[in-house]
Simulated assay, not measured.
Amino acid sequence: MSGVTQHPIRFLLSDMDGTLLLPDHSLSQRTLEAVRSLREAGVLFSLATGRPPKAMLQMIEALGVDVPTAAFNGGTIVNPDGSLLVAHYLPATAALTTLTLFADQPGIEIWVFSGGDWLLKDPGGPMVPREQHGLGYPPVKVESFEPFMERIDKIVAASANTELLIELEAQLLPLVDGQAQVSRSQPVYLDVTAMQANKGEALATLAAFLGVPLEQTAAMGDGGNDPAMFHRAGFSIAMGQAEEAVKQQADVVTGANTEEGAAQAIERYILNR
């Protein structure tokens, strides 16, 4: 967050789940029209999400995104056709520390994303159907995560027990300090990625690639991984259903995603600027 500013916005970077998307992972017509209006007004638009790249392709096409996007919280930056621009992998030492801690926690599902695949040991976990619906493709069952340790994009602890994830986040942070980013992308997901894999770095990388000064950028999101881009953007927008700690780090708060808050924000704060 850099304070409310009157600089014209030339580039908007938006989160997906909980921001652009409704709870059923769909896009409303109003949101589609708002993004279309951005492009018509000459404002560049892109996505930054904790999702893997291939879980973004449908939304990229639906929204008409024609610039690079950031997956895995910024750990991977890809062209609209899915080809790779930048990749930051989780250090093997941090991955081992994370997996060891998570393995000792009852009620936690452990997911590893590597090489475009969603890897897990137990495909029958209760959180799996939700994630599969959101991603649009099934997981791959593995006996061990060890063969993938050198090319891990993201590790996720998933649980409906949000208090447990908050406690787990506090335990893990000092163990991987300086090695990895740890944040809750949604209340039920705790994400662990490389240090460079954060949405703030993604915003700066994309803005430089597009030739847009940071003071002429805006960021919009709802999760614990979104303030990283709020602090780098010239203007920041939090969704109405976001946790209070997230909202306090944004310049303005819009409606909830169930109220088409992203479209509201685009119409009010970007197009009318």
Rank of each mutant, 00 (worst) to 15 (best):
A180D: 00
G107Q: 02
A103P: 00
P139S: 10
P139L: 11
T97I: 15
Q132P: 00
L168E: 05
P174M: 13
V182C: 03
N161L: 07
P138I: 05
G115D: 02
I108V: 11
G136S: 06
Q181K: 03
P126C: 06
G125M: 04
V142L: 04
V156I: 13
V140Q: 10
F148S: 10
E167I: 02
Q181V: 11
P126F: 08
N161K: 07
G124A: 14
V128Y: 04
L101Q: 03
T162R: 12
L168Q: 13
T100E: 12
I155K: 08
L99W: 05
I152C: 10
G134A: 13
V142G: 04
V156K: 00
T98I: 01
Q132K: 14
P138R: 09
P174E: 07
G115N: 06
G125P: 07
V142F: 08
T97V: 15
S159W: 03
L135R: 10
V156L: 14
L165T: 05
D177H: 09
E167L: 11
Y137D: 00
P174T: 12
P129D: 09
S114E: 00
E167Q: 15
D122S: 06
G178H: 01
L175Y: 04
L173R: 14
S183E: 11
I155M: 03
Y137R: 05
L168T: 15
L101M: 13
Q171V: 10
P147T: 08
T100V: 05
K141D: 00
Q181A: 07
E167K: 11
E163H: 15
Q105C: 15
L175C: 04
D177V: 07
E143A: 15
G115M: 08
G125Y: 11
F113D: 08
Q171I: 08
G125W: 11
L135N: 14
D117F: 14
D177G: 01
I152Q: 10
R151D: 03
Q171F: 00
K121N: 02
P123E: 07
V140E: 03
D122C: 01
E143S: 14
A157P: 02
E131H: 10
I110G: 00
I155L: 07
V182Q: 01
A170I: 09
Q132Y: 05
I110A: 01
W118Q: 01
A160V: 08
D104S: 15
S144A: 11
A180G: 05
L135D: 01
P174C: 12
L164M: 11
A157H: 03
A103F: 00
L99S: 07
L135P: 06
E167H: 12
D153W: 08
V182Y: 04
F148R: 09
I110H: 02
K121R: 15
G136F: 08
L164W: 06
P138M: 05
T162Y: 12
G124Q: 12
L164C: 04
E163K: 15
V112N: 08
G124W: 09
